[in-house]
Amino acid sequence: MDVLSDVVAAMRTGQPHSSRRYKYALGPGDVVFLAYGQAHTLSGALDVPLREIRMQPDGTWGGWPQETREGHPDAVTLCGFYRLDRERSHRLLAELPQIVHLPATAGGHRALRAAVELLGTELEEQRPGTDAIVTSLLDTLLLFILRAWWESERAAGRARGWAGALADPAVAAALRAIRGDPAHPWTVAELGAAGGLSRAAFARRFTALVGEPPLTYLTWWRMTTAGRLLRHDDLSLRQIAERTGYTSEFAFAKAFKREYGTAPGHCRRTAP
């Protein structure tokens, strides 16, 4: 399951899926995850006509429905979002459905429910340390959402692609090894041994589930790690090269430019 942490760390996404429309009846405590940032609407019921609400020039919202029950809303929603870099897609996020709906069933996804409750409490009370806590809880909430989706896919026998890779002990062991030490000069034989398979058997299984050979994925993860370090750390290029398995700045810069289409220094200077 450590690979799910990598998804949150990288937070890359692919292109949105089809424009097909979906309708879901939501209940108290339900969680909905929109993986591709597509437009969506909320209404009091599935058959209620939608009303467009726009911000007016004076900063007020036009078309807002009247409050009921003496000023108390019928429902309160808790929303959060990530700003995603769409230029590099993480395989797991690219395989998510357009909408992940996790109903609040009795006894289901207890950790997810707890995270939602904690997040709601922090946002409602706004005590010292709330800003830092909310940031951490959003990452935690995303992990629980991904885990809940993965577990539901596995339980329903639909664990394919990355969901299948996470469920496969040998491939999951190799992914953890790469994540734990991307600077190590991994070979296919070593990664296979981590999962108890021969070199050939491991290479076939990894490629079938992940969608690319082990060393190709290793390079991708090294470059993803390097991109994150360039944007968020003050390490020198030599230090980043060492942490991602390159013996020289030149070799690292060449691999980075091949992957990103730009030099590492330029990437750092233009980071948001």
Rank of each mutant, 00 (worst) to 15 (best):
R158E: 09
R160L: 09
A155N: 08
A159F: 01
W150A: 14
R160D: 15
R160F: 08
L175G: 13
R158H: 11
A148S: 14
W162L: 15
V171H: 05
A148W: 08
D168V: 07
R160H: 15
W150V: 09
A167W: 00
G157W: 11
V171R: 06
A163E: 09
E151N: 11
E151L: 14
A174W: 02
A159R: 04
E153N: 02
R154K: 15
G164Y: 00
A156Q: 05
A174R: 10
R160Y: 07
A167D: 14
L175Y: 12
A155R: 10
W149V: 06
E151R: 12
E153Y: 02
R160N: 10
A173D: 04
A170E: 05
A163K: 02
A177W: 08
A163Q: 11
W150K: 09
A165L: 04
A165H: 00
W162M: 15
A167N: 08
S152I: 06
D168H: 11
S152D: 15
R176Q: 15
A167M: 07
A174V: 06
D168P: 03
A163G: 15
E151I: 01
D168L: 08
E151C: 11
A165S: 06
A155Y: 00
A174F: 02
R154A: 08
G164L: 01
A174T: 11
G164E: 00
R176N: 13
A159N: 10
P169S: 03
A159T: 01
E153W: 00
G157P: 07
W150F: 12
R158S: 10
E151V: 02
A172V: 04
R160V: 10
A163L: 03
W150G: 06
A174D: 03
A173R: 03
R158C: 07
A156N: 06
A177Q: 13
A163S: 14
A170W: 00
E153D: 11
R158T: 04
A170I: 02
L166M: 13
A170Q: 03
D168A: 09
R160G: 09
L175D: 13
R176P: 07
L175F: 10
L166V: 06
V171N: 00
A170P: 06
G161C: 01
A173F: 04
P169E: 07
A156M: 03
R158F: 02
A177M: 10
G161L: 03
A163T: 12
A159W: 01
W162G: 06
G164C: 06
W149A: 14
A156L: 08
L175R: 11
A156P: 06
G157K: 09
S152A: 15
W150I: 09
V171Y: 00
G161R: 12
D168G: 07
R176F: 03
W150T: 13
R160A: 13
A148N: 04
L166H: 00
V171E: 02
P169Q: 02
A173Q: 01
A148H: 10
A177Y: 05
A177R: 13
L166T: 01
G164Q: 10
W150P: 00
A156I: 00
G161Y: 04
A163H: 07
W150Y: 14
E153V: 02
A174N: 07
L166P: 04
W150C: 10
V171Q: 04
W162Y: 13
W162C: 13
A174E: 02
L175Q: 09
A170F: 00
A148F: 08
R154M: 11
A177G: 14
A177I: 14
A156V: 00
A155F: 07
A177T: 14
